[in-house]
Amino acid sequence: MSQPTATVFGGSGGMGQYVVRELYRKGYRVRVVARSEEKIKKRLHDVDVEVLTGDAMDPRLTRRACEDSSLVFHSIGFPYLEWEEKQFPVMESLLKGASGDGRTFVLVHSIHSYGIPNTNPVSEDHPTRPKTKKGKIRLKMEQMLQEAHDHGDVQGVIVRFPDFYGPHATNSYMDYIVSTALKKKKIHWIGPLEVKREYIYVPDGAKALVELALSGKAGGEAWNIGGQEVSGTKILDTIGKILDKDLSGKSIPKWMLRMMGWFNPDMKEMVELFYLYEDRFVLDCTKYEKRMGRIPVTPLDQGIQETLRAKRDWGSSEFNT
């Protein structure tokens, strides 16, 4: 029996690189598609993968990347400022490349499409009625995949995650916090420090995601894969203990975030998402657990320690998405 092939777009990113590792561990031949060959080789130097680089908006590249693949993962991340320009053309290009042969197409997504929650925790049955620009973009991408699934072009799987954290999960809020903590003692925290939010350690998320993709039970549905609910105070305390550093947090209210946006385009993009930082938002993962089993959970202190170790080795924060 020939070795099955899987293609991971954004395979050098925060979640993508761990999806690659899990697929490789499961015996797949993995094709990694990203913009930087150097980053792929550096982050996946110990994994035997096929490397493709280029513009994911090019259907010729995506068709080549998806050739002979039974599984396709879309885990490409863009800075917020590029969402309107790039998200839809890339999604369209990837769907064209993946169409045919009954491929499973897994969309690695966020919670933006839910909008402001009516209930907590939030299950997959919750209405998707986002009012933010980013939420509407995410929802449209999900609708594009669902339409391709309904037409029989692919077996579409939508997976919604909370905030990522972990080694090399650079496009994340937690990465910004960790990077700042390494340089300073005072952390500017968006929203109230005592409010609990949900975070998933990327290796845990990748394990759960790959298990779902390989199960044959996921097509045509949206799935929640959640992590740990933890307050800003707890996160800063944990980072401080690991660094042996007395960290303090200053809560940033919405009006201050808006003022910061006058000078920082990334902060400006965060204003409409303030609802995710001021109130509880937790995913209900009952559906996943009933069909697939428990989602792996790495203890917070261990996950943050690994994140800090990688940050010290690599440096730089890329908080954009």
Rank of each mutant, 00 (worst) to 15 (best):
Q87F: 13
S123V: 09
E147Y: 11
K26V: 00
S316L: 10
D101L: 12
A65I: 04
V51A: 09
S99V: 01
L247Y: 05
S179Y: 12
G227I: 02
E82F: 11
V202W: 04
Y80K: 07
N120Y: 07
D279V: 02
F263Y: 14
T298F: 05
K39N: 06
L214H: 03
Y201T: 06
V178W: 01
L44T: 07
S2K: 13
I304A: 08
E37W: 01
Y176C: 04
V20L: 05
R31L: 06
G97P: 01
F105Q: 04
F78M: 10
Q17F: 06
D175Y: 05
P167I: 06
R43D: 02
N224G: 02
E211N: 15
S316H: 10
Q228V: 14
Q87W: 13
M174C: 07
I40T: 05
G303L: 05
M141A: 10
P299H: 09
G303H: 03
H149W: 03
G205P: 03
V90F: 10
T298K: 12
L214V: 08
N120I: 15
S317M: 13
A98L: 09
K42I: 00
P4R: 10
V297L: 12
L81N: 13
G97T: 07
Y176A: 15
W189M: 03
K86W: 11
F319M: 14
A222W: 00
I137W: 02
S251N: 09
I116V: 15
R160K: 12
E82V: 00
Q155D: 10
L182Y: 09
W83M: 12
A56V: 15
